[in-house]
Design a protein around this nucleic acid. Structure first.
Length: 119
DNA sequence: GTAATGACCAGGC
DNA sequence: AGCCTGGCCATTA
């Protein structure tokens, strides 16, 4: 199902282009299958926003944690969580991923096995 | 309008 | 393996 997390009714809607981009990105993230992960760059590319990897991170940062977006399936190109190891978010992310059957080796995810680049 | 920031990436050393 | 540098683009002050 689509994310539709962007409440355009309340959001100030800075620009419509950004709105489309963010919606595409959020939708793409919600399409990540369980047991798989995706990188910021790949998400941006799948969302048709090639080169806007940083924007993906910004959206996740702004989004609430209760959002239906599986933020924990999003990792950086190095196969690691973008949070410091001391952060609770980092621990929680790896925990959630391991719950989905993803093998994590020394705080690192094997992108060669678990990377999802679309269908 | 300019400058700084950021859950990034690829390349070079 | 790690660390640094430049580039990327939207948001924010």
């Amino acid at each position: 199902m689509v994310a539709s997390e962007s409440k355009r009714s309340d959001e100030p809607l800075t620009t419509k282009m950004a709105n489309e981009t963010q919606d595409a990105i959020l939708t793409t993230i919600s399409r990540i299958p369980k047991g798989k992960v995706c990188t910021y760059g790949v998400i941006a590319k799948l969302a048709g926003a090639h080169g806007k990897a940083r924007y993906v991170g910004h959206l996740l940062k702004k989004l609430p944690t209760d959002s239906s977006i599986p933020w924990h399936r999003v990792v950086n190109a190095q196969g690691k969580s973008s949070f410091p190891e001391t952060s609770q978010k980092h621990q929680e992310q790896l925990k959630l991923l391991s719950e989905e059957g993803i093998t994590i080796r020394n705080h690192r995810i094997q992108l060669t096995h678990y990377l999802w680049q679309g269908e």
